[in-house]
Design a protein around this nucleic acid. Sequence first.
DNA 1: AAACACTGTTACATATTTGTTAAGTTTGTG
DNA 2: CACAAACTTAACAAATATGTAACAGTGTTT
Lengths: 221, 221
Amino acid sequence: MPRILIIEDEQSIQRMLEYDLKQLSYEVDTALDGFEGYKKASTKQYDVILLDVMLPNMNGMDICKKLRDEGNNAYIIMLTAMGDEYNVIQGFDLGADDYVTKPFSPRELIARIKAGLRRQGIGNEKDILLYNDLKIIQSSYEVFKDDQKIELTLKEFELLVYLVLNQGKALSRDQLLTNLWGFSYDGDSRVVDVHVFKLREKVDPNSEYIKTVRGIGYKMI
Amino acid sequence: MPRILIIEDEQSIQRMLEYDLKQLSYEVDTALDGFEGYKKASTKQYDVILLDVMLPNMNGMDICKKLRDEGNNAYIIMLTAMGDEYNVIQGFDLGADDYVTKPFSPRELIARIKAGLRRQGIGNEKDILLYNDLKIIQSSYEVFKDDQKIELTLKEFELLVYLVLNQGKALSRDQLLTNLWGFSYDGDSRVVDVHVFKLREKVDPNSEYIKTVRGIGYKMI
DNA sequence: AAACACTGTTACATATTTGTTAAGTTTGTG
DNA sequence: CACAAACTTAACAAATATGTAACAGTGTTT
């Protein structure tokens, strides 16, 4: 079920969108101001985020930038007033995926949401991830190494999937925490380290795949 | 290098887009009618296809549908006349990823192209820095010299990136300290010198790239 | 040439980061 | 509620990076 977050302070628009999207059996969350919206977006995984630019407390641009900096991968559609080209360009620069100007046609917006979901589907379609001698089946939460089944806990599994999906990139503890744990780095949490350790133990005993990037975090090579 | 196909029969628009996109060092192909466009799109892999709806020989909708049916995965941006909502919805249904109505702002269209490329994970120009025989990948904190991997510590890496980004400028110790260390020059710290030394050792043993500017600091030529 | 100023280089102490273990704490299950 | 499994926190050892000081060169000025 696709999950959508609507961050929009005009209640009438919000209600309408929520209604339409629920009709399509999407799971819809809403936020009426910027700060609330940001908090929701960064603590839960959404497929699409509808983000108004003009918001109380925290504007859409800042939210978009922060989310992207945290590694959030949702399909972000910005909503803005007509004729605001400067904002449009800036929004794209900050990592927005699409832009719709108000007043918009609900049908068009929904078409754009669908297009975004479809796009994501292309990347996320892979239920089975392969990485060297590892086979990861997401739908059944199973991992095999050389066709030998390996028992992982949920966090270990999520961590492994996230690492594989971001293969090659160095991932900061902060990014791992916000994306897998849902809270931000308070300075000295060792949770990530411990889980990496346990994951390595089971899956990569010689640290061949999961490399530590000193001063940053970890990466899967 | 991202590859883009423009299928558009208005030469003026086509020329303008081609020019702009080549400026961004994209590889650009063009087609002036539907059939030619379809043939090009289906015989070569493009990252983004700009597709006019009204075209001689074969219209944009049909092209879009056929390409998707063939499993083509390019990011398709449709171009259509203003106010043609029916077409917009239909275009999305047939698999378009984005829709821009004429007349459009070139800057906005380019922003949308970039957003599409980013979605596909293509052309992160800023992620990879090239400097002579050095390749610096920021997302993975890796450095290659003649495609040979070089191990740098975090400070060395940050220093190298900063030097490359400010290529040609002489950078004072003070400036380097405030930007990379976060404190200001207290008079006689050797920290920068030592790190430059170590960086040179690993990356530029003959001081060909990193020149010392006597009395000031260093610069990357 | 001598005195001076600046930079290169090395070795070492210190600080920071990470690996690892063990002991709490929470959560889910019967 | 009791129990086990999963997770987090805490602590410390080990590994590594960083800053400092000392000194050797090298260029610059008078």
